[in-house]
């Protein structure tokens, strides 16, 4: 077993996904199978190989810092907000 239910729970917490007990069981099984399948990658000799960071060979385009930018129309900013008050998006109160 590469991972157990405890690890699945930990990952789910990191990914902020609520899982039922049933789902924890299933995903633990799935993830184990998938990770086992990935084990074969260890056969590949990657000594002195640089990891890929991007597959295009472009030069990164850099935008001008112009002040007359076109902003999103105001009514569109909060158009899809699940919960809002005035111009603000809102979430349940966070206690620091």
């Amino acid at each position: 077993m590469l991972i157990d239910e405890k690890i699945t729970r930990k990952i789910a917490t990191l990914a902020k996904i609520d899982l039922s007990e049933q789902e924890i069981k299933e995903y633990t099984k799935d993830l184990n199978n998938i990770l086992k399948w990935m084990e074969e990658l260890k056969e590949v000799d990657v000594s002195n190989i640089k990891p890929v960071t991007s597959i295009t060979e472009n030069k990164l385009y850099e935008r001008d810092d112009i002040s007359h930018a076109i902003y999103v129309e105001q009514e569109k900013v909060l158009l899809n907000a699940p919960d809002k008050v005035g111009d603000y998006f809102t979430v349940p109160k966070v206690i620091e």
Binding site: E62, R63, D64, Y71, D87, Y88
Partner: peptide, 22 residues
């Protein structure tokens, strides 16, 4: 609040970062 924003600033799906030369 939430004025003069770009699409990326509210994390809309499909938006992409483009770096500012300045």
């Amino acid at each position: 609040a939430n004025h003069k924003l770009d699409l990326l600033d509210i994390g809309l799906p499909g938006t992409l970062p483009v770096i500012n030369r300045m």
